[in-house]
């Protein structure tokens, strides 16, 4: 530390590759995309139009209808994850962390398998299973006498989005399960035993002792789910195509941006409107992250053992 005025070149050498790649491929394009949202193309020339693209996106009914539809669908997609994926994940983790449970490593590995599969596999596999042509889903419902419940879920406007959200839940339940499991393992035995002395066992112990202690992990899972959902694209694209059918009922921001950017059928792609949608997505994710960082994380009590 003696030679302070001299440039320590090794620091520069160590930092340069990462900073260079990260800046050039991630940060610079991110801001460039925000900038491109302020331009439009007029006869091969790029022209600065200020906030016009956003006025079109929110004001022109042809655009705003699609945008609000995609945003609303995206929120529904997120709500399903929060209400189904995370509680199931917590439940599985709570069971797995039982100290006397055998084969817990085996269960963990098996339940995590869907998470490692690609969206393409997951999307098509469920499309085939739920398909009325193949008949696995109706056949299985028939076997338990519930055939009347069957509908071609992915083909019906009112069910398709919820079905896909549940498929996504099926795929990703392993992540909250693992993170909560890890959090549960860090709770010291003495605290649980202290609770037992006060008569708290089983579910009471879980609700009164463990759950408050794992709240920070649940917060992290919520924000990871939020960012992941508002950035989702692959599953919808693999299962329903870029048009997010039937009749845009499964359209979310990712597919909407893709269609706008690249065009589809007769409409030409528009990188500037695509950038405007990306900017809106950026704003939504930023708001979510800020709510988490300043509203939730700082208020949560953390316990040190």
């Amino acid at each position: 530390m003696a030679e302070r005025r001299q440039i320590r070149w090794h620091i520069v050498v160590f930092l340069t590759p990462a900073v260079l790649v990260y800046t050039a491929i991630m940060i610079f394009p991110l801001f460039n995309t925000l900038r491109l949202a302020l331009y439009t193309e007029v006869g091969q020339m790029r022209e600065f139009v200020g906030l016009q693209n956003f006025r079109t996106l929110f004001g022109d009914p042809r655009w705003s209808d699609s945008f609000w539809n995609a945003l609303g669908n995206n929120f529904w997609f997120f709500i399903i994850h929060m209400l189904v994926q995370n509680p199931i994940g917590v439940l599985l983790a709570a069971i797995l962390s039982h100290p006397k449970l055998r084969f817990s490593a085996l269960y963990r590995s098996a339940i995590f398998i869907p998470t490692i599969l690609s969206f393409v596999i997951v999307g098509f596999a469920w499309k085939l299973i739920l398909s009325p042509i193949w008949g696995i889903a109706p056949g299985m419902l028939d076997a338990v006498g519930l055939k009347f419940l069957y509908a071609p879920w992915l083909g019906k406007e009112e069910y398709a989005l919820t079905t896909l959200a549940l498929v996504s839940v099926w795929q990703f339940v392993g992540i909250p399960m693992m993170l909560i499991y890890a959090a549960l393992l860090t709770i010291p035995e003495e605290i649980i035993e202290a609770g037992e002395c006060d008569g708290l066992t089983g579910w009471a112990a879980f609700w009164k002792i463990k759950l408050p202690l794992i709240l920070p992990s649940i917060g992290i899972i919520s924000i990871l789910t939020f960012v992941g959902n508002f950035n989702a694209f692959d599953l919808i694209y693999a299962a329903q195509g870029a048009l997010a059918g039937p009749d845009y009922s499964t359209d979310i921001l990712g597919t909407f941006m893709y269609r706008t950017f690249f065009g589809f059928q007769l409409q030409l792609g528009d990188p500037h409107m695509g950038s405007a949608i990306a900017t809106a997505m950026f704003a939504i994710i930023l708001i979510g992250v800020c709510i988490y960082l300043f509203g939730i994380q700082t208020r949560m009590r953390r316990y040190q053992f």
């Binding site: 991630m26 394009p29 991110l30 491109l36 694209f233 950026f282 994710i285 930023l286 992250v289």
Partner: peptide
Amino acid sequence: LMGLYLALGIMIPIRIGTVAILEL
């Protein structure tokens, strides 16, 4: 500051910048 700068990308998905990445 450098640590914070590099950590920005943990929460912000790179897909947001796709339009400009393709252009690049």
